[in-house]
């Protein structure tokens, strides 16, 4: 597995601010991984993402120390066009990223910018719209789409260029359960079909907990906890300290443990929890 993102001892300090927003952070993400970045607001998540994108320091002026590699590219010194071929970001509010007045034009736009031949564009647009599940809506205006569809369209429009890494900034925060499901399905499809590396910044965990490879928890500009969901949630996490809620089933499990129930593991998904509780009940039934 190749390394997609490699960060070594990164320090970032905004102009006119005394404290560093990111403090000596090191990180490695492999190609094709699905990683969730969590933490309270102001912990440096956004700063980290903007630095990976090279927006810091190119646009937002800041003092940056340390090294960032995205595959073989140094985003701190690369042009936006070069960066676009490797890594792309979809912000929380997709409205601002939709730059045309129809779904078809939106997906065709980047391909047109790179001067692709007409037939190739039509073929790729069709393909991408099928992947994200927006076929048949070609002539609709982005404004008329639902939140989940907008999010999917924003992803679709960058997808046409086949970026190797997609950063999702709170992709589900403004979505209803249906929209969230659409985004989750899309992420799984991307990984399967294009082996895209996905880094999602999130507050909510439930939607991704079963599929995510690794969770990174940031606090005060550093990564304080790291591992697969099972490991991360095996010890009790207090939402008020961490800045995000663990899965509800895990919270129930923490309570049970505190009240003296011995659990073999802390469950992170509903199915797992059901199995564990069923096991315990069966045991009790057998012993009594």
């Amino acid at each position: 597995m190749a390394t997609a993102i490699k960060i070594e001892d990164l320090w970032v300090r905004y102009r006119e601010e005394e404290d560093y927003a990111v403090k000596g952070l090191s990180l490695e993400i492999g190609e094709g991984e699905f990683v969730l970045l969590m933490g309270p607001s102001g912990c440096g998540k956004t700063t980290l993402c903007l630095t990976i994108m090279g927006i810091i320091p190119r646009v937002i002026k800041a003092e940056v120390k340390g090294s960032v590699r995205v595959f073989d590219l140094d985003p701190l010194n690369a042009s936006p066009t070069e960066i676009a071929k490797y890594v792309t970001i979809v912000f929380q509010n997709p409205e601002m990223q939709l730059v045309t007045t129809s779904v078809y034009e939106e997906v065709a736009f980047p391909l047109e910018n790179f001067g692709l031949p007409r037939d190739e564009i039509k073929r790729r647009v069709k393909e991408v719209l099928e992947v994200v599940g927006l076929s048949g809506l070609e002539d609709r205006s982005p404004a008329s789409l639902s939140g989940g569809q907008k999010q999917a369209l924003a992803i679709a429009s960058v997808l046409a260029l086949r970026p190797k890494i997609i950063i999702l900034d709170e992709p589900t925060s403004q979505l209803d359960p249906q929209g969230t499901k659409r985004v989750t399905d899309l992420i799984l499809k991307l990984r399967k079909e294009f082996e895209t590396t996905i880094l999602a910044v999130e507050h909510r965990i439930e939607w991704a907990v079963e599929y995510v490879d690794r969770i990174l928890v940031m606090s005060g500009g550093k990564i304080v906890l790291e591992g697969d969901p099972k490991t991360v949630f095996s010890k009790e996490i207090k939402p008020e300290e961490a800045g995000f809620r663990p899965p509800q089933v895990s919270e129930i499990a923490y309570k049970l443990v505190r009240s003296g129930v011995a659990l073999p593991t802390i469950p992170i998904s509903l199915n797992e929890a059901l199995n564990i509780f069923r096991g315990i009940l069966d045991e009790r039934a057998a012993s009594s």
Binding site: Y14, R15, E16, V59, I60, K61
Partner: peptide, 10 residues
């Protein structure tokens, strides 16, 4: 505007 690096002087 200054903080986001959008000010013309930057």
């Amino acid at each position: 505007v200054k903080r986001w690096g959008l000010h013309w002087s930057d």
